[in-house]
């Protein structure tokens, strides 16, 4: 299963950088679930995965999108951004 490097915003580089295996056919929505679990992100927060400034759409096949964007496993990272998902 291919591994990708993720960087969670708001954490220092050591804690914020993780390699996470994402199945080749997984959509970005599926990838988000795996990322959420790995970083233990609260359900109160909505997350977005951003690569080279492009938020990845949930139904996009994750590996295909990154291939299209010429993801380089040796040097590139995918940014994980979380913010409030709405509440009162």
């Amino acid at each position: 299963m291919p591994e990708y490097t993720f960087r969670m915003m708001g954490l220092p580089p050591k804690q914020g950088t993780k390699k996470i295996a994402i199945p080749a056919k997984a959509t970005c929505g599926d990838a988000k679930k795996l990322v959420r679990r790995q970083y233990k992100i609260s359900d109160r927060l909505v997350i977005q995965l951003v690569f080279k400034g492009h938020p990845i759409r949930d139904r996009e096949v994750f590996s295909k999108f990154l291939d299209k964007m010429k993801y380089n496993a040796k040097k590139d990272t995918i940014t994980v951004i979380s913010q409030q998902a709405g509440g009162r």
Binding site: M9, G10, L11, V50, G53, H54, I81
Partner: peptide
């Protein structure tokens, strides 16, 4: 820009 108070980090993020 995102602000994380736990680590005192301000992170700008490019959005296309």
């Amino acid at each position: 820009i995102e602000y994380s108070s736990q680590y005192g980090i301000l992170t700008p993020v490019e959005i296309e």
